[in-house]
Design a protein around this nucleic acid. Structure first.
Length: 221
DNA sequence: AATCCGGGGCA
DNA sequence: TGCCCAGGATT
């Protein structure tokens, strides 16, 4: 697809980061960059809302403070502690990641995409999240929030309706990433989608992207 | 690229 | 009830 022109990209980056400075959420996993904690949060957040993850994240880390604690645990116990987050294959895979990381990587989670994605339960999103949030790398993330924001702002309803796969969105997410600021930019993008550019009743009237958003421009109101 | 996966919150 | 949620694995 045709990527947005450079000036628009810069304007989007600037306005998103400015918005983030004012409206960002204070979430437990933003208080650390330790790879293990980032990993636990990202696995829990797969298809699961932030508000349901927070208490379980804190409880899980109290029970398994390090990746070695988790690796030593019995999988059945980990599975019980997971309830009621759902997708109960996730704790099994997280436990397997802990054991494999201790066994093959001396307890240090890999920071390269290929090694991360060989681990069970880590796909493109989670690999990018670990690389950006734990290791400060310039890695893009694409989740349901980012997809909605980018689809609205840069594609608009007409083009959006014709998009099939995820490639368009990944290309956009990578093109927009400001080098050296992937942590804040990715967190900002997800916060923005979760609290401003929401599925229903988005905050268009006071949206910082209003001037160039491809969707607000076509909406009746 | 399409489908399936588990469970809870909310309009 | 139906939609939505910081996706990944399998086909």
């Amino acid at each position: 697809m045709k990527l947005p022109p450079a000036p628009r990209i810069r304007r989007f980056q600037r306005r998103l980061l400015a918005w983030y400075g004012v409206h960002r959420r204070d979430l437990p996993w933003r208080r650390t960059r330790r790879p293990y904690r980032v990993l636990v949060s990202e696995i829990m957040l797969q298809q699961t809302q932030v508000d349901r993850v927070i208490p379980k994240y804190l409880q899980f880390l109290r029970r398994y403070p390090t990746i070695r604690h988790l690796a030593r645990a019995r999988v059945e116990e980990v599975r019980r502690l997971w309830y009621p987050l759902g997708y109960n294959i996730r704790p099994v895979r997280l436990h397997a990641i802990a054991r494999e990381t201790v066994a093959r990587y001396a307890g240090r989670l890999p920071d390269d995409e290929e090694a991360l994605r060989r681990l069970p339960g880590i796909g493109r999103y989670t690999a990018g999240a670990v690389r950006a949030f734990a290791y400060g790398r310039d890695a893009a993330v694409l989740d349901t929030n980012v997809r909605r924001v980018l689809g609205r702002v840069f594609l608009g309803p007409r083009r959006l309706a014709r998009v099939r796969g995820q490639k368009t969105f990944w290309d956009l997410a990578e093109a927009l990433l400001p080098p050296g600021r992937a942590y804040d930019f990715n967190q900002a993008l997800m916060d923005f989608g979760a609290t401003w550019c929401t599925p229903r009743k988005p905050q268009c009237p006071r949206c910082p992207m209003r001037g160039f958003c491809a969707t607000v421009a076509t909406s009746a109101s």
